[in-house]
Design a binder for these strands. Structure first.
Lengths: 193, 193
DNA sequence: GAAACCATTTAACAAATGATAAAAAAGAAA
DNA sequence: TTTCTTTTTTATCATTTGTTAAATGGTTTC
């Protein structure tokens, strides 16, 4: 079992956008810590979620269904936010499940409280702005990779940029994340070795 | 030649996030209008851009190079923002060119002015937050489509959701947008008819 | 209209991926 | 260990997509 360093709340908040102590405390006051075990379904599709999370320790994946088979489209590790964007942005039901792939320690932040802080504290509003901007950059990078690179290239990139994910997650999830079947990923792995 | 309705500035700003008249005017004071002709390269890869734009009238595309061939990864039409995200978010050089595909009327907003407003006006900070959130939703939808759907399904979805793009843009750009070759798109079109 | 140019389609073959099933390997449980 | 279960790999064949080149169709220019 590979262990990864846990990520402290201060660092997570600061990495997004620097805040004064006052504003930072306002966010921290709205955050609670929870431990949940491997296999726990954190978000359920077609439900309104009331929280977003940050991963202190552990990994998770988001997946949705296409016909019968589930497709993983996101992995999160220590420091990453767990957000159902349709919930967070538009108060709509999400289309994804989020499953914890290891025992996790999470920071939970009630969306409602955060939305209130956005309207009261300009620093937190900018923190929230930066949060979405950074997620947008990640999403765009992902998009470009899917559109520009072959499955083999995407696999090698994942191997290079997120070696921990590959070691900690089963290949069927990685295959669907890469947009290919598990059989196809196996072939790629055999060729690359 | 298909003509589309032009999109007024007030509507563009309001569609993102409702603002008081004062805050809205602050944004509007920072915006200038320009007309640029078809073929104009608005953003150049590996350059720091100092503005973002909104399309009043016309269409545009963003593309980047993979080896020799250019790949279109974004289309914009009336009402859409034109932003080089790496420039806007991280002040880094972008990797994309943006080309105007028709004669265009654009609203130009200097990034520096906007960043200043973010720090001074909480309403505008939240407007900027919402702006990125909405772009993030679009990006995620795009990502899901690429990962979940076949080329044929993506083509049909584009046909359904953005009929104007298909009528106004040449097929080679659409093919690369869909992540396939032009030949492959031709085959799909022949089959679908 | 003819010539030149560009976009789109079609054809032929190669390469990559999907689908299904079976075998091998790895883990978990008794 | 041995058994059972799950994950991963391998094999086979069908389908899709890529590559290259040629043919068709449409526009522009002279």
């Amino acid at each position: 079992m590979i262990t990864n360093k846990s990520m402290e709340l201060n660092q997570i908040i600061d990495n997004i956008y620097p805040l004064t102590a006052t504003s930072k405390n306002r966010i921290k006051e709205s955050i609670t810590e929870t431990k949940l075990s491997k296999g726990h379904i954190l978000f359920k599709a077609n439900k309104i979620e009331t929280s977003i999370y940050f991963i202190k320790k552990g990994i998770a994946r988001a997946y949705a269904y296409s016909d019968d088979n589930e497709i993983t489209f996101w992995f999160g590790k220590e420091g990453d936010p767990i957000v159902s964007m349709q919930n967070y942005v538009n108060n709509k039901k999400g289309y994804e499940d989020v499953e914890l792939l290891e025992d996790c320690e999470l920071y939970e932040l009630k969306t409602e409280k955060l939305q209130k802080l956005f309207l009261e504290d300009i620093q937190i509003a900018n923190w929230g702005r930066k949060f979405s901007e950074l997620e947008l950059i990640k999403s765009e990078e992902r998009l470009i990779a899917l559109q520009f690179n072959t499955a083999t290239e995407r696999y090698l990139a994942l191997l290079k940029n997120y070696p921990s994910i590959i070691q900690r997650v089963q290949l069927s999830h990685i295959a669907s994340y890469l947009g290919i079947t598990q059989v196809s990923l196996s072939r790629i792995r055999a060729k690359v070795k």
